[in-house]
Design a protein around this nucleic acid. Structure first.
Lengths: 169, 169
DNA sequence: TTTGCGGGTTGCAAAATGCAACTAAGGGTC
DNA sequence: GACCCTTAGTTGCATTTTGCAACCCGCAAA
């Protein structure tokens, strides 16, 4: 690992999607708001009360999340005072990142048991750890990973990966 | 999903590990520093140059990461001007969260191709998406998940999970 | 013993955050 | 339609965090 040095210098130039993700989700409260949304919170006053966040900041964060397409804002037809905030597909797909963070906090924090917990609908068992997977779906441990530049990738392998991805659709 | 409303009110009281994780990693630059560390950056000046971060902020962030046990600081024996910053096991285990964020940014950002890329050492193929797994390791889609309070979990099931975990060791 | 490097700290300006009070647009009731 | 309540904000001001530039200090090499 760490075999190759990624050129970070062009962060604003940029060849990594992490800064992009952080621009949307890297601010104070963004992940907490997301978590509340995943737990069925939809309204301004609900977010405010449950998070204890300042109203102006909440307003600002919700606007940014909407601007980034992570949440959708909709004035409710049956009571036009009310506004619904809903996760979009883009927002929903932050779940693995959020769960990974939460699991890490659970493991390394002071043994916080974290309720509620996500369970598999099939057997009502709590989920396992978020995993890094290989192209074929088997899970990979840290020691099985290396950084490579795209230019160094196996061309044939890439073709196989593309075929697998197409086949999975 | 969203069947149950997680009580967020006691955020500082608190029953979720997410705020804990965010306390360590939720500040501006923390994830960027982590990424640099994963890419083999070990020294103050290197971080500073590659990230373009202000020196005082970098100093502060590195101290906090060290305080949180995410990085280890070591004055080098062969040249005592130099200081090495190394990821600890706790830091290394943030990789899934970082990759999940990066993959999300890659998918929803403007098609950024992100170089370098993590590959499986076995076949040099780029890794697949970070996945939420069931207790038995199979991957779970969003629709297969529900929130449950710990008190509602299947007691027998829990025992089975514990047995599986023990068996896996 | 001076020069320069690595890893910081300090002082100050700008931006983000937080709190409390206020507003504005609907809706319910009489 | 006058009154009051609810929801979703905004505004003004104090505090904190961030960022920039300059400075500092121990150490090593010459």
């Amino acid at each position: 690992m760490g075999k190759l040095r990624e050129p970070l210098n062009d962060i604003y130039g940029n060849n990594c999607a992490l800064p992009l993700a952080l621009e949307a989700m890297g601010e104070r409260w963004s992940f907490m708001i997301l978590r509340a949304a995943f737990n069925g919170v939809h309204h301004f006053e609900e977010f405010q009360q449950e998070l204890g966040i300042a109203r102006n900041i909440l307003s600002n964060r919700l606007s940014k999340l909407v601007d980034h397409g992570i949440m959708a804002r909709e004035v409710m037809a049956e009571d036009r005072r009310k506004v619904q905030y809903q996760l979009t597909q883009k927002g929903i797909e932050l779940l693995p990142a959020m769960i990974a963070l939460r699991q890490w906090g659970e493991k390394w924090g002071a043994g916080v048991p974290s309720t509620p917990v996500l369970v598999d609908t099939r057997d009502e068992q709590p989920i396992g750890p978020v995993m890094i997977t290989a192209h074929d779906g088997r899970s990979l441990a840290y020691g099985e990973l290396v950084w490579k530049h795209r230019s160094e990738l196996q061309p044939l392998g890439q073709a196989r990966v593309r075929m697998a991805a197409v086949a999975a659709e």
